[in-house]
Design a protein around this nucleic acid. Structure first.
Lengths: 339, 339
DNA sequence: TTGAAAGCGCTAACAT
DNA sequence: ATGTTAGCGCTTTCAA
């Protein structure tokens, strides 16, 4: 059996195709009994609406595109889930792509989304994509930056104050008496990374006698964090930092392992550790991890709602939502933490 | 500027729309100079093909659907990545949905994919979906089961022998002298879980003096594994198992933590631990984890290639590919492991 | 090698 | 309240 179309349904229900379309899209304007009849015809023919045709007619699809920086990072998984839920409420679906921090991948997905005529795109960009986004806007595709502000103010954004987050982490470490800090993270081209470092630096500068060094990693992964930890353990204890701020929780978890396995470094006694993102794994790790929490859920949700409004009305003023991060203290930085 | 269409391109290049379509789809049959002219017109108008129209005309889209059981499980992330790559090579994109082990979610995605007229679907099913898949086949949508065999042989499948995997884990534990085994996993309705247990049981039965108990968990997550570990630690040491087989690596990592934190249980000395999936995190965890490796990459790749062949020719005999799992020994079960 | 034209399934404007 | 119809952008015969 080939797919039944509105025409077939109309024939069986003895109405016109227009009426069938109406029961699909505005059932309230058609007589109840007619609705009934059409519905049962659909049932009988197991009719399934053809999205392609609908989309062709409408001029755009009922889908939103989302490009995240990293598929493996639970922060983005959470964000994506929230976006999917919010979009579903509005009758949209979400197509997700991961750029893995690669420019060409990002460009590839943007191209795909353009062919698909998505209604809008939610983007956590690798580099500043203002030029490309302006092209998309010209074809009627709205976009909102997530977890990142554009240098160009003309695109809406939903992000978290990474500089404040970095400051939060550093000041917590300093308040608990640490004076030789280290920031473990990289590459610095990732804006989130450099902002967090920047925030930490500012805090350090306010406190004479406190220093901070940068321990670079190639990627924000568990393996890289572990490598950095093992490296730290090689140093004579006096030259090790006593407070470490990791650029994200994956790196922090890796550090936890590198420091433990090779060096039996006591955490938090010898080194206090603070991560970033507060992923589900943070509270579940060997030493529960102090972390800077970002409202991943809220970011996804807000991103979608702004995107949908702008898709509706392209002349809306761009908005910039900036959430504040929050410090969650656990044992990795405090012996008295309850968790 | 609204989107340019083939018509606009044709006008500018002074050719017919048919020719434009040809340079898009079979450039070899059109004169080189014409190709040139059309291409430059496309460039000038920044033409982007409208997938919806193409799809409407073709009768199906250039996309494949993939439904996984769990978005948080790296095994499925890997599988999905492999599927995307394989699909991309054939000019298809992949739309991914996570059922999270929920029947209604699975049904929802199947419905969405049907509306989208995807070319085929790759499915790691919650329950046996033969009925529904037959409907899809009737509308020309092929399907292949991944990581699971249907009771109904009429659908192709690509899976890994979970019974063999369970046997592998148990026999390794028994060979290293463990006699009181425990299987930590659940819910047993998940076929992968019950098969792994079944395999372990068979192995235990071959060895008099060896026993196995089941410690159930509600979900295959780190948190649940940790809870099970803490529970195990409550018991007097003599009543604890000396060899534990976890239904997957997330659970195993949780166990690692539960056993460590509360009980300072030595791993592998007091309890040897084996996980399943060999996710990236297994080798990077505090005590590197022995695990049963599944060729996630291969599964995704093979799944896509079978799916595409069946989409091409619906009358093909269903095929059933069964890969064998492989044991990767690390410290969590062996003091002499190099890793 | 290229052009002309039909038609995929749908929605919305207009007519009844 | 319902019917009729044009047309979205594309691919693909068929004809020239």
């Amino acid at each position: 059996m080939a797919s039944a179309s509105v025409k077939d349904v109309a024939a069986l229900a003895q109405v016109s195709v227009g009426t069938v379309s109406n029961v699909l899209n505005r059932p309230e304007i058609v007589a109840p009994e007619t609705v009934e009849r059409v519905m049962s015809a659909m049932q009988k023919l197991s009719y399934v609406r053809n999205e392609a045709a609908r989309q062709l007619r409408l001029g755009h699809s009922q889908a939103l595109g989302l490009i995240t920086l990293s598929g493996g990072n639970p922060f983005f998984t959470d964000l994506a889930t929230a976006a999917e839920d919010a979009a579903a409420d509005a009758g949209y679906s979400v197509i997700v792509g991961n750029s893995n921090n690669l420019r060409e991948r990002e460009a590839g997905y943007l191209g795909l989304f353009e062919e698909l005529r998505v209604r809008g795109v939610l983007l956590s960009p690798v580099a500043d994509p203002a030029r490309r986004l302006r092209q998309l806007r010209d074809r009627g595709i709205a976009s909102v930056l997530v977890d990142r502000v554009s240098t160009d103010e003309s695109f809406s954004s939903v992000s978290v104050d990474d500089v404040a987050g970095g400051a939060l982490a550093a000041s917590h470490l300093i308040d608990s008496g640490r004076t030789r800090l280290a920031f473990v993270g990289g590459p610095l081209e990732i804006r989130q990374v450099s902002d967090r470092l920047e925030g930490a630096r500012r805090e350090v500068e306010k406190h004479p006698g406190v220093s901070i060094e940068v321990v670079p990693v190639a990627e924000l992964t568990v393996m890289e964090g572990r490598r950095a930890g093992e490296q730290l353990v090689q140093r004579p204890p006096a030259q090790r930092p006593d407070g470490v701020f990791a650029a994200n929780d994956l790196v922090a978890v890796g550090l936890l392992q590198g420091l433990f396995i090779n060096g039996r470094v006591a955490i938090p006694e010898d080194i206090a550790l603070v991560g970033y993102d507060d992923i589900m794994f943070a509270s579940a790790s060997v030493v529960p991890l102090t972390s800077v929490r970002q409202p991943s859920h809220l970011i996804g949700q807000t991103g979608v709602s702004i995107l949908l409004e702008e898709a509706e009305d392209p002349d809306l003023e761009p908005r910039h939502v900036l959430y504040q991060p929050e410090l969650v203290v656990r044992r990795s930085s405090s012996l008295t933490a309850t968790d």
